[in-house]
Amino acid sequence: MTFKAIINGKTLKGETTTEAVDAATAEKVFKQYFNDNGLDGEWTYDDATKTFTVTE
């Protein structure tokens, strides 16, 4: 399945996608990506659209 992340950061904005077997796996991938890029913020997840949003 394809999962999307919308990034609303102070220094980084945009979208990225990942292929994962479930939402928990996708969340781990996205959180690692955000940690690697120095992002920290509020997380939400919309199961209907398979979209994570992080707002810094």
Rank of each mutant, 00 (worst) to 15 (best):
I6M: 06
K10T: 11
D40W: 14
I7C: 12
A5S: 03
L39D: 03
K28G: 07
E19I: 15
D22P: 00
T11M: 10
K31A: 06
A20M: 02
K4E: 02
A26I: 02
D47M: 05
K4F: 10
K31P: 00
E27L: 15
E27F: 15
K13L: 09
D40F: 14
D22I: 02
V29S: 05
M1D: 09
V21L: 12
L12F: 14
K13A: 08
T51D: 00
L39M: 11
F34V: 13
T53N: 05
T53A: 04
A20T: 04
E42F: 12
A26D: 02
G9Y: 13
F3N: 02
A48N: 12
T51P: 01
T16N: 04
A5H: 02
G41F: 15
F30Y: 00
D46V: 03
T18W: 12
A48V: 10
T17P: 02
D36V: 10
E56V: 14
T51N: 00
E42T: 13
E27H: 11
K31I: 07
G38Q: 07
T25L: 05
Y45C: 00
K10Q: 09
G9D: 03
L39W: 15
A26L: 02
W43P: 00
A26P: 00
D40E: 13
A48C: 08
A26S: 02
G38L: 09
L12M: 12
G38K: 07
Q32E: 09
A23H: 07
A26Y: 00
T51M: 03
E42H: 10
G41K: 04
N35F: 14
K31R: 14
V21G: 05
L12V: 11
N8G: 04
Y33L: 08
T2S: 08
D22E: 03
D46I: 03
T44L: 08
V21R: 11
I7M: 10
G38R: 06
T18F: 15
G38F: 11
Y45H: 00
T11W: 14
E56I: 15
A5N: 03
D46N: 09
E56G: 06
V54D: 00
M1C: 12
G14V: 15
D40K: 13
T44K: 08
V21M: 11
E19S: 10
V29W: 15
M1Q: 11
E19K: 13
A20W: 03
V54N: 01
A24F: 09
E42K: 09
L39F: 14
I6S: 03
A48L: 11
T53E: 04
G41E: 03
W43N: 00
A26Q: 01
K10E: 08
G41P: 05
T51E: 02
W43S: 01
K50Y: 08
Q32H: 06
T17H: 09
Y45W: 02
E19A: 07
T17F: 13
I7P: 00
D22G: 01
E56S: 08
K4M: 07
T2I: 14
A5D: 03
F52H: 00
V54G: 02
A20P: 01
D36G: 06
M1T: 13
K13C: 15
D22C: 03
G41C: 09
T49W: 04
K13P: 04
T55W: 11
F3A: 02
F34N: 01
V21C: 10
A23N: 03
T11N: 12
N37R: 15
D46M: 02
K13Q: 11
T44D: 08
D47T: 06
N8C: 14
I6F: 06
T2H: 07
Y45F: 05
L39K: 05
K50N: 07
K13V: 10
G14W: 15
A5P: 02
D36T: 09
N8S: 08
G38P: 03
V21I: 12
A48Q: 10
E27S: 05
T2R: 11
A24C: 12
T44R: 07
K31Y: 04
Y33V: 05
K31S: 04
E42I: 13
K4I: 12
K31M: 08
